[in-house]
Design a protein around this nucleic acid. Structure first.
Length: 216
DNA sequence: ACCCAGGGTCATA
DNA sequence: TATGACCATGGG
């Protein structure tokens, strides 16, 4: 019940976020790879570069030299690593038959399959599954771990899967709910950061500290 | 001049 | 299994 209440508080305060930013499922997937440990504003520039070069397309990415691709990805950081990761992902994407080929999979099988791609870890996989392919997985990121650990609802040092199972057990298995919840957690974290709250941790959802109030 | 960002891989013990 | 090094740009 507590997990749902927190969702309601966040939703009431921030409103629906309608995530993920991106015009197409493929753009969402590319964004998921590029945003690894990276500020979203930097990712936007890289995606703009891809669009400018008509390269926001798996076939084009595969036909582009790593050097040139890395150049386009430069603003998103880790550009050499990400160029390879994007190529690995596109190879998988095309190999599975693109968006159409990815329909009709069982979530468990698809998740295991995509985790086999070099450079796609659990969070990136779940971003893709939830925000591009509409599968009900709860995305766990550093913000989620930090916030709920601070709220005393999780220990904080659990493994990724353990945390994911916890959230998925506490909530109704619903794509729209998981989609909005993770988005709100990220927005909340950015909001508290913007207010210069140290490490985004001094704002909590407890009584007397209602989102905008800073403790300490 | 730091610190951090919507992680993941690889080498080591 | 569990740390640590590494990847790298841009904003606060």
């Amino acid at each position: 019940m507590r997990f749902l209440q927190i969702f309601q508080q966040l939703l009431d305060h921030y409103g629906a976020q309608h995530w993920w930013p991106g015009d197409t499922p493929f753009e969402v997937m590319v964004g998921a790879v590029l945003t690894q440990n990276t500020a979203w504003t930097n990712v936007e520039r890289a995606i703009e570069n891809l669009k400018k070069n008509k390269a926001l397309d798996p076939e084009v990415i595969l036909d582009t030299g790593s050097k040139e691709l890395a150049e386009w990805l430069k603003p998103s950081g880790y550009f050499n690593v990400k160029a390879e990761r994007l190529k690995h992902f596109c190879q998988w994407y095309v190999g599975r038959g693109g968006l159409n080929g990815l329909k009709g999979w069982h979530l468990h099988d698809l998740r295991a399959d995509i985790l086999g791609v070099k450079g796609i870890g659990p969070e990136t996989a779940d971003d893709i599954l939830l925000y591009a392919l509409d599968h009900p997985v709860f995305v766990i990121d550093a913000y989620t771990r930090r916030l709920f650990s601070r709220l005393g609802l999780v220990k904080g040092d659990e493994g990724y899967e353990q945390l994911r199972f916890k959230f998925e057990a506490e909530l109704e298995r619903d794509v729209a709910l998981f989609n909005e919840y993770h988005a709100l957690i990220v927005i909340h974290a950015k909001d508290t950061c913007r207010k210069r709250v140290p490490r985004c941790e001094a704002c909590c959802l407890e009584d007397g500290c209602r989102f905008s109030k800073t403790k300490d």
